[in-house]
């Protein structure tokens, strides 16, 4: 599927998911089914999808208090005598809804990222009328992302290999916290400086190839009728789900 279709569809999906009211369990299930079947169809596999989806788990804590703060039919009480929290059915429903929505949205985002090559993703962003300059910056950033991550990894390795101490009595190993933070800062500064000078070299290479500041790119093939059809159907399905919710 062309990225220019995938990206809006993904956005629409997440939008639908978020707009669906709390507690509309059937809609959630349908949305979940949609995502997971798409995952299977695209040969991504459910295992991969759900492995990555576990990432969202920690943030769920932010909504946890809702169980106790939304008033409604009480379910159970916890806490020592002087301080009790009453869980309500509505609160639990709200919490579960938020968790479900978040989890489902996360899956479709994973799906998008895993099935779209980066250049195609940029294409999709351009099609959404993202400013050319920003897309160019992101593109260059991607190109050098792994280079810089490698440099950061090597800095960490260099520090690790110098972070050793024999078991000598009376010595506080590891240095002070502030010192450790400052050393980390030095590493960051090193990274930034090298990237700055790298950017100068890149700029020189770009001008040697005729770069003049204007970001141009080849025109992209227009979307086929079939693509528009897919987009249309997709949006209709989502609209339907929204209405029954």
């Amino acid at each position: 599927m062309d990225a220019r279709i995938k990206l809006p569809l993904t956005l629409a999906f997440i939008l639908t998911c978020s707009l669906t009211p709390f507690g509309s369990w059937w809609v959630y299930i349908l949305l979940l089914a949609l995502v997971n079947s798409a995952a299977i169809l695209s040969e991504l596999g459910l295992y991969f999808l759900h492995k990555r989806a576990l990432l969202a788990l920690p943030f769920v804590l932010a909504a946890f208090p809702l169980i106790f703060t939304i008033p409604g039919n009480p379910l159970f009480t916890v806490g020592p005598g002087w301080f009790t929290l009453t869980a309500s059915q509505q609160g639990l429903a709200r919490f579960a809804s938020i968790t479900a929505k978040s989890w489902i949205s996360l899956q479709v985002a994973i799906l998008l990222a895993a099935t779209t090559t980066f250049p195609d993703l940029l294409l999709g962003l351009r099609a959404l009328h993202l400013p050319r300059l920003l897309v160019a910056v992101i593109g260059l950033m991607w190109r050098y992302l792994f280079v810089m991550v490698d440099e950061a990894a090597r800095l960490l390795r260099a520090r690790a290999s110098r972070s050793g101490a024999r078991d000598l009595p009376g010595k506080k190993v590891g240095g002070q916290l502030v010192w450790r933070a400052r050393v980390t800062g030095g590493m960051a500064g090193n990274l930034f400086l090298r990237s700055f000078e790298r950017s100068e070299r890149i700029y020189a290479a770009m001008t040697a190839r005729g770069y003049d500041g204007e970001v141009r790119s080849l025109p992209h093939p227009p979307l086929a009728q079939r693509d528009w059809l897919v987009l249309g159907i997709g949006l209709l399905v989502l609209l339907f789900l929204l209405l029954i919710g």
Binding site: V137, M148, Y203
Partner: peptide
């Protein structure tokens, strides 16, 4: 940005963005 940096803006910002991304990996215990 266009006014200030001109042509250099894309390479400079692109690589520095990569550096910030990578820099977020640096940690101290």
């Amino acid at each position: 940005v266009n006014r200030e940096l001109g042509e250099r803006e894309v390479p400079l910002m692109g690589v520095l963005a990569a550096a910030i991304f990578a820099g977020q990996m640096l940690n101290f215990s």
